[in-house]
Write a protein that binds this DNA or RNA. Structure first.
Length: 886
RNA sequence: GGGCGUGUAGCUCAGCGGGAGAGCACUGCCUUCACACGGCAGGGGUCACUGGUUCAAUCCCAGUCACGCCCACCA
């Protein structure tokens, strides 16, 4: 017996444990079933479940459960990402609290600390996924720093290096002075900052009374200036080209060069060039043969290349001091307020510095070509398709990918340097040693230094679709589950992750990593801001689960999965779907109380009673909508179909229709109805199971207590052999409209809810009379009638009247009804019909419409007009009957 | 500066060439033997604006306005 109230906390966790213990989540690997593969985007091992995860994981879980129940060999591959910077920061903060830092601890001990932290806290998010009801194949859970995955990373690096697709280069990188590492372009975010624009004067070397004025937002970088550029066609400066200025403070003599980079419209038209600290200036410097002078330390303090008084100063302290010095010299022309974009590191949270360093780069341009073609040719499709534009736009202008990071936590780059700097890139230290011996022609051990840097976290993530399967080992999983079917993710990691998986997958596997990329909405906070740990605006889905249950949260997310980019989650909506679960719970209790339990030999195609034939058809249509919705990633349509069927069709109408039958005298019909009710409910619960796995499982248990199988492992309903009975559908539709109409009239006339009244149909067709006879008891019950019959004789005085198809509905309400109001009401109704008919007449008189519109549309309009006219005329008659002769 | 998206009932959002929808909120009635986390009935919208295409436009196209996001090296 079900408990009287629905309490998700009473069974959700317990059910999950039972599912997991039963092993149903596991992929079978061998066997004949068609494989289905979805790669879980690995959450950061530091992470905890946020709303974005909840949405992402729910959608994948719905797909995994659906495929599994359809008999597919579903692999939903779970795991976590080592999240280099984020994780290292967590442990570094711990060290800071202990009054130490990673340099004092040392690299090896530090990495041990991180592993220890991971062992202790790294499992939190997977526990939260279980709470959400996610059912990936936990037995195959991977971590990007696992031994196997690390081997894949090393092999990919070495192969790409030997193919010339990974190389070492000295160039400007985005340097994060807080984290003291290079980061990629994608990890830089531009922020609008209110700053100043300083106009500084640089005196000409050979004519110190003449100045060139340059404008800059970063005066401190002048310490590294090695030139001033003007546009070659700029008449103001033409005579200065080739001359030099003497840099104030520094005293360095630097040339004035002509370069098209200088924009005559900007500032003074002359621009200072700091090749070591600006990406544009670096290019200008290369073109013009200017020196490159680095004036910053890795912490963004001024280094010894600058004059003594500035050394060791923070970049912003140095800025003030430089401006003061210029001011003292009378070399500040003016200072403007200036709003401009400043690049910030997305993790470190401080402005990045363009910084000249040696780094490892991946030739993304070459790898991108096949990845672009794969989407162009449709081998991989984005859903919605519009995201392909975003993908193409980025891939077609892709820059070299800086893959080295000056961190300790991550995959250490498999490169070793010989005494003379020769680099050996090999899969292991032993192989590097062998290569070095061969290179140097010696048998003696060569002193090699392992490159201290680690790889960008996304480098290993890029291999996820095949490294998790066991690659580079030759294992059956690789052939069976690659390429995957679908990647479900949010748009914000199309560049970071999707694009890179495409590149690596195509290069190493020769095949796309997934056929479909389903991009869902990004869950934002109430201000439309992207949720992030650093902003502290993360909503905790676990709290919602605690209050409303995992099913309510899941159903909410699935229902909202069709909307645009933003999801602003409303608690009220979650509450509404909790109520839906309660409704299901109570409906099942009702069935239980009425002995509506599944009959093993029940065949829905053989039911005879129209009510039952109707509900069978409704189930069939609902199932089709659910399948279509899931097939095309229109999750919300599947959810809406189930919600409507469950609440409106099944509970509000079918269960009410059948109450008189269950308590009636015809035991054959009652038995068929009990069986049909149980069948319809069990189909509903079964179809709803992927979306609301917990409550449906609990209800299933009560519906079919003898069943050995849990719902999670049962075959998905296949109703292909069942058809919709159109007669039953029309007939029950009519009954619904009749009851609704009577209720509306009662309500409008203020008939007391408990009062039984009579209802008559004037001029009904024979088929209508038959329908009435077939369903009289339930119509009487649901409309609260003492009698309902065709009208014999005249319409009683003081009747409320309305139209229902070809008949007029008559409710004798003498004494209750206000005839003046009733006349006004009928006139209003007639007016509405007249207006509709007028519109249709206009349309049907339009020759263009008749000539060009499809015949079926024209016909449909004619039919509508005829129906409207019947209704209007019935109402006119009704009005005439209660209007005194003039 | 480029690109993308969104503007539909009070709120959150579906729909997207031929009859304006849902949930919540709101109003009235109802504690009827599954459910008040409920039932029944109801009010509420020139589908942002302006043009165009079409026999027909909330839906397609162009432009305008508003909001949001992504990308971009402008001193």
């Amino acid at each position: 017996m079900l408990d009287k109230t629905y309490d998700p906390k009473a069974f959700e966790s317990e059910l999950y444990a039972e599912w997991e213990a039963s092993g149903v989540f596991g992929a079978s690997v061998d066997g004949n079933a068609q494989p289905f593969t979805a790669m879980m985007p690995p959450p950061n091992v530091t992470g905890s479940l946020h709303m974005g995860h909840a949405l992402n994981m729910t959608l994948q879980d719905v797909l995994a459960r659906w495929h599994r129940r359809r008999g597919h060999d579903a692999l939903w591959q779970p795991g976590t990402d080592h999240a280099g910077i984020a994780t290292q920061m967590v442990v570094e903060r711990q060290l800071a609290r202990e009054g130490t830092d990673r340099w004092s601890v040392g690299r090896e001990a530090f990495i041990d600390r991180v592993w220890a932290w991971k062992a202790e806290s790294g499992g939190r998010i997977t526990g939260q996924l279980r709470r959400l009801g996610a059912t990936p194949d936990w037995s195959r859970e991977r971590f990007t720093m696992d031994e196997g995955l690390s081997r894949a990373v090393v092999k990919v690096f070495v192969d790409l290096y030997k193919q010339g697709l990974i190389y070492r280069d000295k160039r400007l990188v985005n340097w994060d002075p807080a984290l003291q590492t290079a980061i990629s372009d994608l990890e830089v975010e531009q922020k609008e900052v209110k700053g100043k624009l300083w106009h500084l004067r640089y005196p000409l070397t050979d004519d110190p009374d003449r100045f060139v004025t340059v404008a800059t937002t970063r005066p401190e970088t002048m310490l590294g200036d090695t030139g001033v550029a003007v546009h070659p066609d700029d008449d103001r400066y033409r005579d200065l080209i080739g001359k030099t200025v003497r840099l104030p403070i520094v005293g360095r003599e630097i040339p004035i060069v002509a370069d098209a980079y200088a924009d005559p419209e900007q500032g003074s038209g002359a621009v200072k060039i700091t090749p070591a600290h600006d990406f544009n200036d670096f290019e200008v410097g290369k073109r013009q043969g200017l020196a490159t002078i680095n004036i910053l330390t890795p912490q963004a303090r001024i280094n010894d290349n600058a004059p003594e008084p500035y050394r060791g100063l923070d970049r912003y302290e140095a800025r003030n001091k430089v401006v003061e010095a210029f001011d003292a010299l009378g070399m500040v022309e003016r200072i403007d307020d200036h709003v401009h974009m400043v690049p910030y590191g997305d993790r470190g949270g401080v402005p990045i510095e363009p910084f000249l360093t040696d780094q490892w780069y991946c030739d993304a341009e070459t790898l991108a070509k096949p990845a672009i073609e794969a989407v162009e040719s449709g081998k991989t499709r984005f859903a919605p398709k519009s995201w392909e534009n975003t993908y193409f736009e980025w891939m077609r202008t892709i820059q070299p990918w800086c893959i080295s990071r000056q961190l300790w936590w991550g995959h250490q780059i498999p490169a070793w340097y010989g005494p003379d700097g020769t680099v050996f890139v090999e899969c292991s230290a032993q192989e590097a040693q062998a290569a070095a011996k061969a290179h140097y022609g010696t048998d003696a051990e060569v002193a090699l230094v392992h490159d201290p840097d680690v790889l960008d976290t996304w480098f290993s993530s890029a291999l996820w679709p095949f490294s998790t399967l066991g690659w580079p080992d030759e294992v059956p999983e690789v052939g069976r589950y690659y390429p995957g079917d679908v990647l479900v993710t949010a748009f914000d990691i199309i560049f970071f992750w999707v694009a890179r998986m495409m590149m690596m997958g195509l290069h190493f596997m020769g095949e796309v990593p997934f056929r479909t990329v389903y991009i869902h909405a990004l869950v934002r906070d109430e201000n439309g801001q992207k949720m992030s740990k650093s902003k502290g605006n993360v909503i905790d889905p676990l709290e919602l689960i605690e209050t409303y249950g995992a099913d309510a949260l899941r159903f909410t997310l699935v229902s909202m999965a069709a909307q645009g980019r933003d999801i602003k989650l409303s608690t009220q909506r979650v509450e509404g779907y909790r109520n839906f679960a309660t409704k299901l719970w109570n409906a099942t209790r009702y069935c239980e109380m009425n002995d509506c339990v599944p009959r093993p030999d029940f065949d829905p195609s053989t039911v005879r009673h129209r009510i039952n034939r109707w509900i069978v058809g409704e189930v069939v249509e609902t199932a089709a909508k659910v399948d279509a919705g899931l097939e095309h990633y229109r999750f919300n349509e599947a959810a809406a179909a189930l919600y409507q069927f469950a609440w409106n069709t099944f509970c509000d109408w079918y269960l009410e229709f059948t109450k008189p039958i269950l308590s009636g005298g015809d035991t054959t019909v009652a038995e068929e109805t009990r069986a049909t009710t149980a069948w319809a409910l069990s189909q509903l619960i079964s179809l709803l199971n992927p979306l609301m796995p917990f409550v449906t499982e609990a209800l299933w248990e009560s519906l079919a207590p003898g069943e050995a199988d849990r719902l999670i492992g049962r075959r998905w309903p296949d109703l292909a052999g069942l058809t919709v009975d159109p007669d039953a559908r029309d007939e029950m539709g009519w009954v619904v409209r009749l009851i609704t109409e009577i209720r509306a009239m009662r309500s409008e006339m203020n008939v007391p809810a408990g009062a039984s009244i009579a209802a008559f149909l004037k001029d009904p067709a024979l088929s209508t009379v038959e329908r009435l006879d077939r369903h009289r008891p339930l119509i009487m019950r649901l409309a609260r009638l003492e009698t309902v019959a065709p009208l014999v004789g005249e319409v009683p005085v003081g009747s409320a009247q309305d139209v229902l198809d070809e008949a007029t509905l008559v409710l004798p309400l003498a004494g209750v009804i206000d005839l003046d109001r009733e006349r006004a009401r009928l006139s209003r109704e007639i007016g509405k019909w007249d207006a509709e008919i007028g519109k249709l007449d206009k349309k049907l008189a339009n020759r263009q419409f008749l000539a060009k519109a499809p015949a079926d549309v024209v016909e449909a309009q004619r039919e509508r007009r005829a129906q409207f006219e019947t209704s209007r005329d019935r109402l006119k008659e009704a009005l005439a009957r209660i209007t005194p002769a003039a």
